[in-house]
Amino acid sequence: MNTIPMSYYLVLSAVMFTLGAIGVIIRRNPLVMFMSLELMFNAANLTFVAFSNAFGNANGQIFVFFVMVVAAAEVAVGLALIVAIFRTRHSIDIDLMNTLKN
């Protein structure tokens, strides 16, 4: 059944990870930055699953569940922070968050 070469998975996950990392760096909306973070996490998940499949052991697939749980917890905290910020400033643009400086 498995006819897709391993390298395809690796390249796809590397591309996803890079896109996610670039997204976090250049996008200014925290919500979009969250999505980019998820992209990075899921790139790692894809790598885990692909390798796990290739090695024929289930470890990597179990790790993906851990990662999903952690990502969900992280997003809960992040969204709560965004709501808190939106309440006080009515904007969540990262570039406007510059009150902290010398």
């Binding site: 690796l10 996950s13 990870f17 996610g20 990392a21 976090v24 925290p30 930055m33 973070l37 990075m40 996490f41 790139a43 790692a44 998940n45 790598t47 885990f48 692909a50 390798f51 470890n59 990597g60 790790f63 990662v67 952690v70 992280e74 905290v77 992040g78 922070l81 965004i82 808190a84 910020i85 006080t88 990262i94 968050m97 009150t99 902290l100």
Partner: peptide, 29 residues
């Protein structure tokens, strides 16, 4: 400043975690 610091910490902290996780995945491979 508190929420602003927190969201910056969160975004960069999660960013760093992403690197740790992807590194772990590659080492697993």
């Amino acid at each position: 400043g508190s929420a602003e610091g927190a969201i910056k910490y969160f975004l960069l902290g999660a960013f760093a975690s992403g690197f740790v996780l992807y590194g772990t995945a590659l080492i697993f491979g």
